[in-house]
Design a protein around this nucleic acid. Structure first.
Lengths: 176, 176
DNA sequence: TACAATTAATTTGCATATCAAATAATTTTG
DNA sequence: CAAAATTATTTGATATGCAAATTAATTGTA
């Protein structure tokens, strides 16, 4: 069902014809499918924990830092401070996180996981992550190497090779 | 990257070899970065068109089919009918789509793009898509082949190789 | 044919997410 | 000390998203 306006041309390489257009189209389709799989599994995690995607994301980020200011959390999540305040409110209502006013600078509020929050993080299926790990670990060495090189080149070409890898959680996602 | 005698090591050791672990971790980090890039560019597209992600997604799906029933649109978008009705309402208010009651079955409503909607689709940067296409087309043949094989294996292992590739548009996305 | 069941879209009600702008409290700076 | 900047929050507005109820039309069947 693709309307990929991909120019399909054959190039002569090393005496072989290579339909680059087809390769590009197939690669993009596969990438879409991978997104889809991750999307599905993330959704599953959300259902399993009873949290929304944003809430789960916040919990994971807080867990990573063990304690984090509201402003840093909003920066890490690329969300407006007002938005994360709302998310924290709802997580606090569920007894998963805890606000602690800093004594050093009384303007700042540190957010931590409660015992209940920590328990949830442990239980929460690291769906996408574990799915990917399991998938990659099942590969043969040659295959794994190929995937790794491919991903690496791809990241490089997209200009994000050096960047700090950001978390991924799905709602709807869309290469259009 | 050199291929050390990893192969001879990896089946000796109880499954988990240090080199393989590193490869897996790097691959997942790269995948995250790729998500991130797509995410950023999708966001850009949303800003450029003035539409939200869901609206843009709907417009693209409608465009693909040229005319689509509300129920089919909701199926294609994996959203509740009530949700897409709201989205269509807002797109209609902006004069981008048009509802047409079917004459064959007066229960169904077909949704089409207006002239304005079609113009928007053309102008709308196919950000992620074009980004990926451009990136892949810049690769050498060897590299492109490697990426393609890698993606293909990955999709296969995730069990989505045969699936119809779903669109991807970002809000927040999260491998956690 | 009439009437029940089904189907398609919509409406209503509710919770969440998201941003921008304004506000309050608290440093920091000049 | 007064002005400026920072931190979190509140307020107000719009969008998403689902479930349940509703309306209209079609299909199946007694």
């Amino acid at each position: 069902m693709e309307n990929n306006p991909v120019i399909s041309e054959s190039y002569r390489v090393n005496g072989q014809d290579l339909d680059r257009g087809k390769l590009v189209a197939e690669t993009i389709d596969d990438l879409r499918r991978i997104f889809q799989a991750i999307s599905d599994f993330s959704r599953h995690a959300e259902r399993a924990t009873g949290l929304t995607g944003s809430q789960l994301w916040a919990v994971k980020v807080i867990f990573e830092s063990s304690s984090i200011r509201v402003s840093d959390l909003s920066r890490r999540m690329y969300l407006h401070p007002a938005t994360v305040v709302g998310i924290i409110d709802r997580l606090e209502l569920q007894g998963l996180v805890q606000r602690i006013r800093s004594t050093k600078d009384r303007r700042v509020v540190d957010v931590e996981l409660t015992a209940k929050g920590n328990k949830l993080v442990e239980i929460a299926p690291d769906v996408a992550q574990s799915l990917l790990v399991r998938g990659l670990e099942e590969m043969t060495d040659e295959c794994l190497t190929s995937v790794q090189e491919g991903m690496s080149s791809f990241a490089e070409i997209l200009g994000v090779k050096g960047a700090a890898p950001r978390l991924i959680l799905s709602n709807e996602v869309n290469i259009a």
